[in-house]
Structures are given as C-alpha cells and as structure tokens.
Write a protein that binds this DNA or RNA. Sequence first.
DNA 1: CAGAAAAATTATTATATTCTAATAATTATA
DNA 2: TATAATTATTAGAATATAATAATTTTTCTG
Lengths: 89, 89
Amino acid sequence: MEIDRTTQADYLKALGHPTRIMILELLEREGHCVTNIGEKLNLKQSNISQHLGILRSRGILSLQRDGGLSIYCIKDPNALKILKMVRGS
Amino acid sequence: MEIDRTTQADYLKALGHPTRIMILELLEREGHCVTNIGEKLNLKQSNISQHLGILRSRGILSLQRDGGLSIYCIKDPNALKILKMVRGS
DNA sequence: CAGAAAAATTATTATATTCTAATAATTATA
DNA sequence: TATAATTATTAGAATATAATAATTTTTCTG
C-alpha cells in the first residue's frame, strides 16, 4: 500500500516536539502510565494526555489498560531509530 | 557535542511538511534551481524559496550558485534515509 | 452505590506555521 | 548602465498547534 506525503508529514510532525521526544525516550526502556510520565517530565496531566494521544493516533505508541491505569508503550520501533538518526545528523 | 531536543524537534518539523518532502524527493537524484523546483511542483516561487530556506537552515540542503541560478542539493543524506524509514513504518 | 483516583476531553488563549502578494535584492546580458 | 531574469525577503491573513484550566468520563475500591 502507498503512504501519501501528508501522512508521512503528520508522522514526522508527531515526532517533532520536545515533549514528545522526551516521552519516547522515557518509554524506550519500558511502558509508563500517564500520571507517571507527567511526574517524570514535570508537566500537566492534560498536556501529557494530549501528546500521548497524538503519538498514539500516528501508530507510534500503543496503550494497554492495567487496572485503573493507562500504560503507554512504544509500538513503532522505527520512531526510536529515527530519533537516533536525527541525533547523528 | 550534545544536540538538544528542541533542535531535534526543529529538524523533524522541517521534514514534516508535504511540500518539503516533495522537494527532497525531487533533489534526491540531482540538484535543481528554485524556478525549476517551482515548476515541477507547480507552486509559487516565494513559497518554494521559503521552504528551501527552512530546509537549508536545518542543514538538510545546501545551496551553490551557478551563474544567476541558486542550485539546491541534498546536504544531509540522513534526511532521505529518515523519509524511507517513515514510508516503511 | 458513593467517593476517590486516573485519564480523556473540551474550551480558551497564546503562539507558530503557512500561503499569497508585493517588493527588494542580486546577477546576467544587451 | 539599463533591462530582464532569478531569487530572497517582507507583510498580512488564514490556519494549525500548544498549553492551561476546567470538566467529564472511566475505573477502582470501600
């Protein structure tokens, strides 16, 4: 299947935000819940939730519920590879 | 040297636009002048010039003058690799 | 079921991007 | 030097993104 340039751009835009980069770095080792991410990054809950939603909508993160928690994990390992390539540019 | 997340994000944002993706695809084979790019993509000159400026400011494109023309070329091959990875996500 | 905890959603405001049109700057050539 | 061709820059309006605060929804637990 063909992936159009708007979708490609949306994917890259999803990666192109400092907070979302921090989230991906944090999730690289293991999944975390929303509150946990917010505390580690010292950002508001709703803001984190919005960023997670963006990353999820692009297929970069997945979410699994664990009790009352929403655990977010890396779904697309390419995202991490891309970040590594950016650092090496 | 350490590359901060804002710079990483700016790099990814530069890649995250359909027109700029088209420009990179066009320049993959060989360099082109501004007018040429504008004609191939059927977009206004000033708009193209602005997009080229963004890509150049991030170190993704380089510019060499040839007579009256500004020839833009890929400077950072990583950008093309990243686009290929995005397509394969 | 009621209350608490976690997360998502909404509305609002502020900021950033993008495109167009117009103008300015640069270079080539007659 | 004047003119044309090429490119860059600027200003403005339209759209998109982002952060906050407030609210709602969902789920767990007593």
